[in-house]
Design a protein around this nucleic acid. Structure first.
Length: 515
RNA sequence: GAGACGGUAGCUCAGUCGGUAGAGCAUCGCCCUUUUAAGGCGUGGGUCCUGGGUUCGAGUCCCAGCCGUCUCACCA
């Protein structure tokens, strides 16, 4: 017999005894709460008479004929003081049957203990659920924690235990949820219409990624999970819904990493008659709005204060989303950080040999950069951006002017051949948004797709497929339009200071155990 | 996909040179009517990730596998 089983049996026996006492926890449906645990603490001075508070038992100390227990609803923690003389024989036995992890409701009067803790002198209480498991609740004093649940795998696999045991994890996950709802309020407040578009698609477009495949029995057809929101949203722009957005899950059949989960939450929004400047303004305003609404400040401190180094050697950065973001031209930034000249980028071979001749090396590793694998000039340019420029973009910055080859849905830049009216936003060296003036010329769009088909033929398995239905919509006439995509998990990482995406996902994808 | 590291009680972890498995907390029993990492005395609790191998003997050494963490690669 395992230890866990016998523990469960003991708790089941306690449950049975509670039922014999007429205190069946699971028979309770409702408990009238006058305050939350945190509210009792916050409003302590002004409280009069009795309070009714519910929560999970987090600590339990029995001393003969009296005892203490902290209860928490996850937000705050309040101590109850139980005395046999005050609650009577039956409830005293019920108190003795309590375990850490049970839910109870207590009715009593606020008072301060000898040691100065704001507490509730319990006059009566109601058991409302029995915990049949030994919960990994640590002990805690003055903000310091002992024991608890720290095994990362267990925290992700059994997230409810993490939420119960680790207040910091709970805070970040709750803030992630608040960030998403704050974004939604921002979009609604600006008059965008929230829409829902298909997740099951016969052709997954709008991004460069491999899709998940599944089978639809009724049509006996292969269907794909969406990798982006873009094309359906622009079909709505074509349908004269001039301001639309969607917040939804997209799925990319790729590996996991610190920054990647195969399903993630994407915001995309499109606005007719607006251009890149308008989109930049809305991104700035959105971050400002969300930071203020969720954190009450536009200043986000990462790894301590600006200029300080934390225990892990991470330099502190203060990001101020109250200020406008910096704007840099992509090619100017690359020239500045690589020493290469615009003339070096006339074609792919010239650029490759220029990189070799100038012995351009990675500023961090010091190794000479190898770009032999790049199939086109645009890809090479983006690689240079990634290696040389991105790490320097700590403060919020828009990088403007992306290459044509890697931007099959963005308008040509009329003033610069080979480039598009597209920008990405970077913070802490990481991409946070991708935006452009959308192509509304159906002939141009068809040519871009055809170019992608040629890339596919050369072996690019992430090249964009032809989408006739999308072009059909463009042919009806689409107004000029700016669009933007923001990975909300990345945004949540940025604002909560998480450096692992799984810390802001309630249930990250894990391999099945024992497979 | 590659490398490094890890997987021992419910939780957090030790385990030396290969010699019958340890601690704290939690559990269970007793004492204790203002404690708070409560305390005191006592008690139970193990598929040492899995499967092979070496050995008289494996938590420990070797091989393979599973899962995880970190780094890298991949990821517009």
């Amino acid at each position: 017999m395992s230890e866990e089983k016998s523990l469960r049996e003991i708790r089941l026996e306690k449950l049975e005894r509670l039922r014999e006492l007429g205190l069946d926890p699971y028979a309770v449906e409702r408990f009238e709460r006058s305050h939350s645990p945190q509210e009792v603490l916050d409003q302590f001075e002004s409280l009069s008479g009795h309070v009714q508070v519910a929560g999970r038992v987090h600590s339990y100390r029995l001393m003969g004929k009296a005892g203490f227990a902290h209860i928490s609803d996850g937000d705050g923690k309040i101590q109850g003081y139980f005395r046999k003389d005050d609650i009577g024989e039956t409830l005293w036995e019920a108190y003795n049957l309590l375990d850490i992890g049970d839910h109870i409701g207590i009715i009593g009067e606020p008072f301060v203990t000898k040691t100065g803790e704001r507490s509730i002198h319990v006059k009566s209480f109601v058991p409302m659920s029995k915990s049949l498991q030994n919960l990994p609740l640590g002990k805690e004093k003055d903000g310091q924690q002992w024991y608890g649940l720290s095994d990362v795998e267990q925290r992700y696999r059994h997230r409810h235990l993490d939420l119960i045991a680790n207040p910091d994890a709970r805070r970040d996950l709750v803030n992630r949820c608040k960030i998403v709802s704050s974004v939604r309020r921002f979009m609604d407040g600006r008059g965008y219409l929230e829409v829902e578009t298909p997740m099951l698609q016969f052709q997954a477009g709008g991004a460069a990624a491999r899709p998940f495949l599944t089978h639809y029995n009724a049509y006996d057809t292969e269907v794909k999970l969406r990798i982006s929101l873009e094309l359906y949203l622009k079909r709505l722009i074509c349908g004269d819904l001039p301001k639309v957005y969607e917040i939804g899950r997209v799925f990319r059949n790729e590996g996991v990493s610190n920054r990647h989960n195969p399903e993630f939450t994407l915001l995309e929004y499109y606005e007719a008659y607006s251009n890149l400047e308008d989109i930049m303004e809305s991104v700035e305003s959105m971050f400002r709005h969300v930071a203020m609404e969720v954190f009450g400040t536009t200043v986000v401190s990462i790894a301590g204060k600006e200029g300080e180094i934390d225990d892990d050697g991470v330099p502190g950065v203060e990001l101020d989303f109250g200020k406008p973001w910096a704007r840099v031209d992509m090619m100017e930034a690359i020239e500045r950080h690589t020493g290469l000249q615009l003339a070096d980028f006339v074609d792919l071979e010239t650029a490759k040999s220029a990189v070799k001749e100038r012995r351009v090396s990675n500023p961090i590793t010091g190794k000479q950069i190898v770009l032999d694998g790049e199939r086109n000039l645009g890809g090479l340019i983006e690689k240079l951006l990634e290696v040389f420029v991105e790490p320097t973009l700590q403060q919020p910055t828009f990088v403007v002017g992306y290459p044509l080859e890697t931007s099959p849905l963005a308008k040509h830049d009329p003033h610069r051949a080979g480039f598009t009216r597209r920008f990405e936003g970077y913070v802490r060296g990481r991409e946070v948004c991708n935006a452009f003036s959308e192509i509304n010329d159906p002939v141009d769009q068809r040519e871009r797709f055809e170019q992608q088909l040629r890339e596919a033929a050369k072996g690019d398995d992430e090249a964009h497929p032809m989408d006739e239905e999308f072009i059909y919509a463009l042919e009806a006439g689409m107004p000029p339009c700016g669009g933007c995509g923001i990975g909300l998990d990345r945004m949540a990482m940025l604002l909560t200071g998480a450096d692992v995406v799984r810390e802001v996902l309630l249930f990250p994808l894990m391999k099945p155990e024992g497979s």
